[in-house]
Amino acid sequence: MERKPKNIFVEGPITPIKIGNSIENHSKKTGIGGHSIFLGQVRADVKEEGTVKGIEYTCYEEMALEKAFEIREDVFAKYPLTCMHIYHSLGYIKAGEICLFVFTSSKHRKAAIDACEELVERIKKEVPIWGKEIIGEEKAVWKENK
């Protein structure tokens, strides 16, 4: 059976309820020994133009989903994972809100931790998602992923 790209996008911030529910949903999977979670939060960076109030995330969705699927398949092939979840925000996310949630699970912690780290790095570098930093009422600056 051919696997299809899963929608990783969430409109608006990723809520603590979504994160908590995702964790709770794994409590019945008793073969899991370790989870690794990464939460990306919008920073209120101070720039030359002013303080970042939030980030407006956009993407070319079809291409982004294909790339995320490719990364997901690569990481599943490389590590003995039980579960993997990736969620990325689209739209306006205020400073202090969560914009990226990566959650990996495995029988042993090392695989979950290593897979989670690789996913985050590859998502930031390879998935065509753009963030425009909103500074004050009238200024915006395109963000560079690091």
Rank of each mutant, 00 (worst) to 15 (best):
H88C: 12
S22Q: 11
E133V: 05
I23M: 14
K28E: 15
G50T: 11
M63S: 13
T82I: 07
K107N: 04
E117V: 04
F38S: 14
A68Y: 01
I98L: 06
T58W: 00
E138I: 06
A140C: 12
K124S: 01
H26I: 10
A64N: 10
S89F: 12
Y92N: 08
E61T: 15
R109N: 11
A140E: 15
H26G: 07
A111F: 11
L119V: 14
L39D: 02
C83F: 07
K53G: 09
S22W: 04
S105T: 10
I135F: 04
S106F: 03
V141G: 01
I93N: 10
G96I: 13
R109H: 15
Y79I: 09
I98C: 15
V75I: 15
A77D: 09
D45F: 05
A95S: 13
E49D: 13
C83A: 09
S89R: 10
G40I: 12
K125T: 10
H88Y: 10
E133I: 03
M63N: 11
T82C: 05
K124F: 08
H26W: 12
I93S: 06
R72G: 08
S106R: 07
H108I: 04
I98N: 10
T30Q: 06
K67W: 00
K29E: 15
G131R: 06
A95Y: 05
V52H: 14
E24F: 11
T51F: 05
E56I: 09
R109M: 00
S36L: 00
G96F: 12
W142K: 15
E97N: 08
L119H: 03
E24K: 14
I55W: 07
Q41D: 03
S106D: 03
V52T: 10
L39A: 03
E24W: 02
I98W: 03
H108L: 02
A95Q: 08
T82V: 08
T30A: 04
E66R: 01
E137G: 09
E66H: 06
Y87K: 11
P80K: 00
H26K: 14
I32M: 06
A111D: 15
V52N: 13
A77I: 04
K28V: 13
A44Y: 05
V52W: 08
K78M: 08
C83R: 04
Q41T: 14
I55Q: 10
T30W: 05
E56W: 13
E97G: 00
G136P: 06
L119K: 04
T58Q: 13
A115M: 12
H88N: 13
S106G: 06
K53D: 14
T104E: 14
G33M: 03
W142V: 15
Y60H: 14
A64T: 06
V52R: 12
P80Y: 01
I23S: 07
